[in-house]
Simulated assay, not measured.
Amino acid sequence: MTARHRGRSILLTSGLAIALAAVVLPFYWVVVAATHSSHEIFDNPPPLLPGGHLAANLRTLQETAQFGRVLLNSLLIAVVYTLCAGVVCTLAGYGFAKFRFRGREALFGLLMLGLVIPAQVTLVPLFQMMAELHWLNTYQAVIMPNLALPFGIFLMRQAMAALPDELLDAGRIDGCGELRLFWKVVLPPMRPALAALTIFLFLYQWNDFIWPLIVLRDSASLTIPVALASLQGLDDTDYGAILAGTAAAAIPMALVFLALQRQFVSGLLAGAVKE
């Protein structure tokens, strides 16, 4: 039995090592390629160790795409969107989970249709709406349309459905108003779900490409995905600068995940162990 367990352990460790390498190596190569020129990136064999072209790539990135301003644009849009959409999704999830009203199930079913309808279907009517509101080339045009994100509402609704109704009834008996009940009683147990929602919303907005490409026209107001795509030319493309921008754009995402990973992991493990 000892030899069998040892063999299983070795097999499991080998499989995890291969999976880890498959995930980490592409990120490692992006970081390494960001330190090389475009010519060096396409050498055969490709470079596997850092080079000395990072400063030149970053300088090119700043000169051609105003990367500092673009980074601030993306941070501002992603942070404001995450905060606003988090409030909307949490309140909507609470309403669907804990309030009984006529047509609740039908309304929730219509909302869930947003998970299966392609986002491209809504681009034209949303663009017309933004044009009528004179919001084109503004940050609110990027932020507002997707505040009530169906997946975010579904996530919070499922998390809050597990909250005992007796806990809420006890708070109401003690004289809590609905807002205070929501803030003091409902939100504290929801920290793992809120962490997962925050990560999802931030990454969703940070990586969004199509909608900012449509509504943002001024080069000084672009987001990172749109600005990096604009560096691809018909005749010449500076892949070193693009990969340097890609590596820099991954840093805020990693910081958000590291800041919330404990709550996020605890949320994934909630209920995994039977008491």
Rank of each mutant, 00 (worst) to 15 (best):
F101V: 05
G177A: 00
I210W: 12
F209S: 03
P189M: 07
T2C: 09
A247K: 00
P125V: 01
V32P: 11
R217Q: 13
E63T: 07
Y239D: 02
C84W: 07
V142E: 05
Q158N: 11
A161V: 12
V185I: 11
G7I: 11
F209L: 09
M156D: 05
V31R: 09
G271R: 05
L83I: 15
G271D: 04
V23G: 08
T64F: 07
G51S: 13
F108Q: 14
G114C: 12
A34H: 13
R172T: 08
L71V: 15
E178N: 04
L260D: 01
F67A: 03
A159R: 10
A131Y: 04
L136W: 10
L83N: 04
Q261I: 08
P212Q: 04
L201V: 01
G240R: 00
T64R: 15
A196R: 05
K98C: 11
V273P: 00
E40K: 11
L197H: 00
G245T: 06
T2D: 15
A248F: 08
F202C: 01
G51C: 10
L234D: 03
I251C: 03
D43R: 14
G86K: 00
V226K: 04
Q140T: 15
M160C: 13
F182A: 01
S266H: 08
L123I: 12
V265K: 02
